[in-house]
Write a protein that binds this DNA or RNA. Structure first.
Lengths: 243, 243
DNA sequence: AGTATAATATTTGCATACTGAATTTTTTTG
DNA sequence: CAAAAAAATTCAGTATGCAAATATTATACT
């Protein structure tokens, strides 16, 4: 590829690293279910598609595997599967980690971190009118990540982040399996936003007990929504989840 | 390196992947503090040292960074630092995750998993007479990993594993900073082995409550031992931890 | 026709070469 | 002698080539 001119992308630190962009691109594709669970991730075809060589693709795949978004069986890499059996452990981990994170955030947050959480809260609310499922789950994700950043415990916030990411993917898989307009979506979003407000309040007031209780409540909301989606769409979902 | 003959290493799956061996080698070197915290990991010199090209080294570094054992600042990769400030969060995470793991293991263990735990317990006891610090911490590590494997919750056991690994590294850093023979070491090891026995019993009987209580007790033992080491050797330790 | 074997095609894993950026060293100049 | 400029060196990031391993297809033989 001697004479081919290529757009060089600078990453946030100012370094010239396509590899990171490839990683982000593939991660987003997996989380948005543009790459379906089980899909084989072929080095050369991805490289061709993204107009880079195999090297940065290989390195991105290694990161995806480390993050649990991809899996290596033998020597082929594929998007991590998501079956019904993995949902209960995921939700167990999500409940525990979100309680931990909200308690710790309430206890340890600085004013700057609180401000960042508030920004994400506002951003989620601003996104509601669009009714765009992908943007909404992403905004919701970032709100909770901002809370995780305020825990002052990288081990726990990393745990939470990986579980939350997997939950995001699960929700997107459910939506993509049956993306018709849900009549209850607006009330669900309103309730979600309301809970975000009170969670923010508790963290703001450093009310650990309430932050903990609200994590449980928020978890129930998320869980019941997923149950609704799954039971209502069990046919297509089971197909999608490849059971 | 056209004409150079090189030993090809087969990994456990039978695939010809030096990259994984490089990763394991570097990870072990970091955990054994042969590579000290903060040490710069230079791609070309590591490649020369291990007699491979830069490519597998780069891929190993990416994995180490994903595991939190190495850090990238700018474009240089170095062994993750371990300062005094990171100890409280680490121990908080360790207490929480070990309680979770032991509760879940008590609840969910299969007979096969119980057997594996028992094997690791025996192996630790067999290692005691050697008084070899590295082997003992490793045997202890594997005992707890076997418990984690019995949780039936990959999210939680992965969390525990990463925290436990970091704690292992911390202990090794402390020992390597001041590796003189501790007169209390034998009573400490005896108590550790005793606790392993009762932990195994609780998991065997599926006694969740007791498994939880024993996690707290075991954590206190580990924590008090670390405190002893740090306070007794604070001078050299502070130097080692680069504060 | 079905199976086994051979030939072929893909694809991964590693090495090497190249490029450009960043740092260090040297040189030049005020 | 100090400061700035320039040259050189080092090193990360990427592309590409090659060899080994695996998957696939074709062919021969029972």
């Amino acid at each position: 590829m001697s004479g081919v001119m290529k757009a060089k992308n600078l990453d946030p630190d100012g370094y010239n690293r396509d590899g990171n962009n490839v990683f982000r691109h593939l991660r987003d594709a997996i989380l948005r279910v543009e790459l379906q669970p089980g899909a084989i991730m072929d080095e050369s075809s991805i490289a061709k598609q993204l107009n880079v060589s195999r090297t940065p693709v290989r390195e991105a795949l290694i990161q995806l595997i480390a993050d649990g978004l991809a899996v290596r069986k033998g020597r082929v890499v594929s998007v991590a599967q998501m079956d019904l059996a993995s949902i209960p452990p995921l939700y167990d981990a999500l409940l525990i980690s979100s309680r931990l994170v909200q308690r710790l955030a309430a206890e340890m947050r600085t004013d700057e971190e609180l401000d960042l959480i508030h920004q994400k809260l506002i951003h989620f609310e601003d996104t509601i009118p669009t009714l765009d499922g992908v943007m909404l789950t992403e905004a919701n994700h970032h709100f909770h990540l901002a809370i995780a950043a305020a825990t002052a415990n990288p081990y726990i916030s990393d745990f939470y982040r990986s579980v939350l990411t997997e939950a995001l993917r699960l929700h997107r898989i459910c939506f993509s399996a049956h993306p018709y307009n849900d009549p209850d979506i607006k009330t669900h979003l309103a309730e979600t936003a309301r809970q975000h407000r009170v969670i923010f309040d508790a963290i703001s007031k450093q009310d650990i007990k309430t932050a903990d209780k609200l994590a449980v409540e928020h978890h129930k909301l998320s869980r019941s929504r997923l149950d609704t989606l799954i039971s209502r769409q069990s046919q297509s979902l089971k197909e999608e989840l490849e059971i």
